[in-house]
């Protein structure tokens, strides 16, 4: 189905995977948007939503791996996966650079996700046609 007014969306996710349905609902919503040929510029992970960016998420085999699903969708459709750095670091989600900065022996931010500031969420709300929040 082709929509006559394609829009530029961003998505904010505040809920962690598995404990909250926010991320999974957002995935369904994102797929529906893309099916109707809307564009998704950015998915921003804030509050407990930052847990979606862990490379170590290991669900049982009969459950879907939410972080992996985001990675696939993002790489197929050029979507930015941005994780709030302040919310992430205090919850133990670090990339290589932050691990070095805080002298940690390992890091766990999944590939395809980027740590950045809250300004990226403000930017999405200013510059996208719609910002849709899940998990508030």
């Amino acid at each position: 189905m082709k929509s006559c007014n394609e829009m530029n969306y961003s998505i904010a996710i505040y809920g962690g995977p598995y404990s909250d349905q926010a991320s999974l609902s957002a995935l369904h919503f994102a797929r529906a948007l893309l099916k109707r040929e809307h564009r998704i510029q950015r998915v921003f992970f804030y509050h407990d939503g930052v847990y979606n960016s862990s490379a170590l998420v290991t669900p049982p085999q009969d459950e879907i791996n939410v972080p992996t699903q985001w990675q696939t969708l993002a790489s197929e459709h050029g979507i930015e996966l941005v994780v709030c750095i302040a919310a992430a670091v205090r919850r133990g989600l670090l990339d290589e650079k932050e691990a070095k900065r805080y002298s940690k022996s390992s890091y766990n931010l999944a590939e395809g996700y980027t740590l950045s500031g809250l300004g990226q969420l403000i930017d999405a709300s200013i510059n996208c046609d719609k910002l849709i929040t899940f998990g508030a």
Partner: peptide
């Protein structure tokens, strides 16, 4: 942490 993280967003928004 909802309250603190909400205020963080307000301050960042203002800074922007």
């Amino acid at each position: 942490s909802w309250a603190r993280e909400a205020i963080d967003l307000a301050l960042v928004g203002a800074a922007f």
